[in-house]
């Protein structure tokens, strides 16, 4: 009868051989991104919208991820969506996001449309790319669809409109007061008939 300790030695040797012969296949960076699609509706030219992207690092080591934009071909875009006119209208709170091992990090994305009537009533699509900085032979990249629909009218900006309105009002009121009060007062009365 073989002693139990001998069995344990055999088992250990067998496991060692198995581990050496069948190493775990290394996986390309294991991370995820959410949300996978963002739809912004009724964003008026002159206005801006913000949202957060979450990058989750599922590995035991820290990773840095780069954020960029990509204009997809027409065939890759959603039906009825045109090319986003200018990448510079999209900004990230940080172009590079460092995510610690087994944790997640958020980055803020801002979409700002210039105040021009020609950008009103449009439906655009652009992709946001998230890719790891440290790359092996095989690399995983994620694209997030960003669908932007603009509103019908240009947003002039509340403060500017109010200030201009008040200034015009004060100016008109001042003219009226000047004309009907001071100017009339200054006019000589008709001489009485002798």
């Amino acid at each position: 009868m073989v002693p139990q300790s001998k069995h344990l030695v055999y088992l250990a040797v067998f496991l060692l051989i198995v581990i050496i012969l069948f190493p775990f296949p290394a996986q390309a960076q294991n991370f995820s991104v959410s949300p996978m699609e963002i739809k912004i509706d009724n964003l008026s030219p002159g206005g801006e919208a913000q949202f957060n992207l979450t990058i989750r690092n599922k590995e035991d080591v820290n990773h840095v991820f780069a954020l960029t934009t990509h204009n997809p071909e027409e065939s890759e875009r959603r039906e009825g969506r045109a090319k986003f006119p200018d990448d510079s209208w999209i900004s990230f709170s940080s172009r590079k996001v460092s995510v610690e091992a087994n944790s997640e990090a958020k980055t803020k994305v801002t979409v700002a449309i210039p105040a021009n009537q020609k950008w009103a009533g449009k439906d655009w699509e652009i992709w946001l790319r998230v890719c790891p900085e440290e790359r092996e032979f095989l690399v995983v990249n994620y694209y997030i669809r960003l669908l932007v629909s603009t509103g019908g009218e240009v947003e002039a900006g509340t403060n500017v409109g109010v200030v201009i309105g008040i200034l015009v009002g004060i100016l008109l009121a001042a003219c009226v007061v000047y004309y009907f009060y001071f100017r009339r007062k200054a006019k000589p009365k008709h001489p009485e008939a002798v």
Partner: peptide, 23 residues
């Protein structure tokens, strides 16, 4: 204009993940 609503819809609040082996 300030009363106009901007709607932001985020599709897929779960995960978006693919695995590739070997690296």
């Amino acid at each position: 204009q300030t009363s106009g609503n901007i709607t932001i819809t985020m599709t897929g609040a779960k995960e978006f993940s693919i695995n590739l082996t070997p690296a």
